[in-house]
Design a protein around this nucleic acid. Structure first.
Lengths: 132, 132, 132, 132
DNA sequence: GTGGTCTAGACCACT
DNA sequence: GTGGTCTAGACCACG
């Protein structure tokens, strides 16, 4: 069963965190067509969140065509979704890269410096997840 | 005169866009002590923004000690601000890098791919500003 | 044996689709007194539907007096049902017409356009069923 | 200012009624780009509905690109929406026509009868709105 | 059991 | 003033 990683204190609304995580999990293939998601009530209890917050996230994902409702039987990953090819996944990363590049430029840093810092950040992050 | 780059449709509030851009310009040395900023009225008119929004941004920058209010003469960059050393500027870049790295990981991309895409993004951006 | 035309993805609940179709078939004379309906189990298997859904639909039809339960032998169309006169059948059509007319008006279409489109729709539909 | 026609007793959820009506009004040209909608609070008070219900409808319309948020200044009809050509508006009517045609067929009515009844329905409805 | 809708009311952010 | 988010809790429809 899929696990969310929610930060209630983050400025990003909870429902948005859920939407983003599910969307990325589908894009990366971690969630496949037909996979079930935690029920609204179960997720609400697990993450100590109001059921409506979970429901709102699921509804948005349904509208995007990523999830499908099975009446009375919960939500599943939509059938018509192939894992997104790596090239398109890079597109999903682009906004974050644009932001970082712009900030770097406005700070007067060189591309060399920015890339070095990004490499360091990536290394640390990916190592953490390997450690677990 | 300093020029803002504002996107009303961005999820980042307008006043925040202003604050960030001014702060970075000062950190990078693009804005130096004594440099004048556009008046609230002028900026509001130029960028089709509510004057209160400009004013709020200036007030925040004043609170941070980056700008100083000269009565009847608009805002100027504070005198006591030396350009921030490159090492500290990297710290200002870190949040954007964290976001990009996290997104990359959730999309199932390799660090190699992410760095290559970031290098490309930087190259394009820095070239544009050279062209002008 | 009577055939249902069920759309699991339709916003109309499955049990309602069944009820409506059987009721209309009886009204039009397509189903006559004594005609048998598929057993709950058979229908559930054929249409990949929860048996309770079929059962619920049959129960509703029984309540309306359209179907009769013969113990151990499935459901049959009630004996006391004469085909509904055409005038009354028009009444059963009215809600669908009301909906179409209202939509047409809200879209700013002329009655002329709406009727032309409806005629086209009917022609296509009736032709299809003749072809089979 | 745009006026809704809400039926709290209808099986169609209130937020859906709002979404449909606004979408049709934009499609028909009754609402034009830049037109303002009633504020969430004002509408909630006028129609004796919870503000969240209005807000939900507006959010859905924003997602569809029909409405745009002006931060702190309410919702307006999105700028990039030309009135939908009549041909496309007929497409929006099609589902209702399909439903009516199918019902008519299942009732064993002739196309002639169905069209006559539809014409009558349209005439009554359009006259009513002229009378007002 | 499942999700959907709605309410009442609180708090926050933006302009 | 504007809309957005979240909660707590009720009720409904579907399978």
């Amino acid at each position: 069963m899929f696990v969310f990683d929610l930060s209630p204190s983050s400025p990003i609304p909870i429902y948005r965190q859920i939407v983003d995580q599910v969307a990325r999990a589908i894009a990366s293939g971690a969630l496949k067509a037909g996979d079930e998601l935690p029920s609204v009530r179960a997720a609400a209890q697990s993450y100590v969140v109001n059921p409506m917050t979970i429901s709102k996230a699921y509804s948005l994902l349904e509208q995007q065509g990523l999830l499908a409702r099975r009446r009375g039987m919960g939500m599943v990953v939509s059938a018509d979704r192939a894992p997104v090819p790596a090239l398109d996944r890079l597109h999903l990363l682009q906004p974050a890269l644009d932001q970082a590049a712009l900030t770097s430029q406005q700070l007067g840093l060189s591309p060399r410096q920015a890339i070095a810092a990004f490499r360091q950040t990536l290394t640390t992050l990916y190592q953490e997840s390997t450690d677990e």
